[in-house]
């Protein structure tokens, strides 16, 4: 009896310590998160005060439009990272997403220029994007290839096919749908901006508001536990890669509408997509990738480039500042994690 009391007491004091510790941990994490967000806010405040026209409605809508393509791609990447786990060498990652967008854009623009209608061309672009995603899924889930490696091989296939299709040239395109996307507007907000808003809303609701999204996090966070709970891990992981391919196809239509053409070199977007998806983790309470966090970091990257432009700072600085910010944010994050005593 006394032994059991003692045992309980020990248990209680352990629990108390654990509670105190986790409270401290939560406080530390909160400080870091607020610190990072404050840094973002400080940069924005600087732009508001010193960059002429930064806060004008026209400019802000322009930023949202420019961010639409990056945003849609970053959602695909975020979904893959959520479902595959955030370990960067073994976890989920889709290096082929930007090249896939290039391929879809080439398919879409080529079909349009050959005289096929919008319906068929859009359908084909989406089919191609999802097929590339399915190829990734087959490699990762079917053959068990490391995602980093599998999507690297698929990147080469997609980029090569884009080049063969377009012969490395600009393929001009125009269609009713593109016309609507370029000049259409509703409630004073342009079609491209609407595309980002609607897509964001869908992604946030699906991933953060449904049991489907919850299971997706379970699969990425602890696949063994998810399997034991009866979740089909292969299905969810495959789904994220196909979704990522779908996002690439949607982004391809947006990029063709912005440029009125499909242009080579879309692969360069990959690094920005990765940066957006990874930077987004700082906006979440547990430093996990979230759709909302990705949206905020996409807008932040867009505002950064825009602010530099308005301040007449050379655009060559944008990459470097983006890189420095990633390092700053991640260093602070890992510092907070380290001080929790988890290492």
């Amino acid at each position: 009896m006394s032994a059991s009391v003692l045992h309980t007491e020990v248990g209680v004091s352990d629990e108390k310590q654990a509670v105190a510790k986790s409270a401290g941990r939560r406080f530390g994490a909160l400080v870091v998160r607020l610190g990072a967000i404050a840094a973002f806010a400080a940069i924005m405040a600087y732009f508001v005060i010193f960059a002429p026209g930064f806060t004008s409605t026209f400019n802000l809508i322009n930023v949202v439009e420019q961010s639409a393509i990056l945003g849609v791609l970053a959602y695909g990447m975020t979904a893959v990272i959520i479902g595959g786990g955030s370990d960067v060498t073994e976890g989920g990652i889709d290096l082929s997403i930007a090249a896939n967008m290039g391929l879809c854009a080439a398919v879409y623009a080529t079909l349009l220029s050959m005289g096929y209608g919008d319906f068929l061309s859009v359908l084909a672009a989406i089919a191609v994007g999802m097929a590339v995603g399915a190829l990734n899924a087959l490699a990762v889930v079917g053959f068990g290839i490391l995602p980093l490696l599998a999507t690297l091989a698929v990147l080469n296939v997609a980029a090569g096919m884009e080049l063969t299709l377009t012969q490395n040239t600009v393929v001009g395109a125009s269609s009713p749908l593109l016309g609507v996307l370029v000049s259409g507007s509703f409630l004073g907000i342009s079609a491209l901006a609407w595309a980002l808003i609607v897509f964001s809303a869908i992604m946030i609701v699906v991933v953060h508001g449904t049991s489907f999204g919850l299971r997706l996090y379970a699969v990425g966070g602890h696949p063994e536990a998810a399997r034991a709970a009866g979740i089909s891990v292969p299905f969810y992981v495959s789904f994220t890669y196909v979704l990522s391919g779908f996002c690439a196809a949607v982004a391809s239509i947006l990029t063709v509408s912005r440029l009125s053409a499909s242009t080579p070199g879309s692969g360069e977007l990959l690094l920005s997509v990765l940066a957006a998806a990874l930077l987004g983790t700082v906006f979440s309470r547990r430093f996990v990738p979230t759709m909302g966090g990705t949206l905020l970091s996409v807008l932040f990257i867009g505002l950064l480039a825009n602010g530099f432009q308005l301040l007449n700072v050379s655009s060559y600085w944008v990459n470097g500042v983006q890189g420095a910010l990633i390092l700053l944010v991640v260093a602070i994050t890992s510092f907070a994690r380290g001080s929790e005593g988890s290492r």
């Binding site: 960067v88 060498t89 690094l271 990765l274 940066a275 990874l278 050379s314 060559y316 600085w317 944008v318 990459n319 470097g320 500042v321 983006q322 890189g323 420095a324 990633i326 390092l327 991640v330 260093a331 890992s334 510092f335 994690r337 380290g338 290492r343």
Partner: peptide, 30 residues
């Protein structure tokens, strides 16, 4: 970055990649 600031190698070297690209563009006027 990796050993002192505890940044994961993937992110640390991604950041350095961005900074390196900027540096080259600035040093060669684009």
């Amino acid at each position: 970055l990796i050993t002192r600031l505890n940044i994961s190698p993937f992110l640390a070297t991604l950041g350095v990649l961005f900074i390196g690209q900027s540096t080259q563009q600035l040093a060669t006027s684009g």
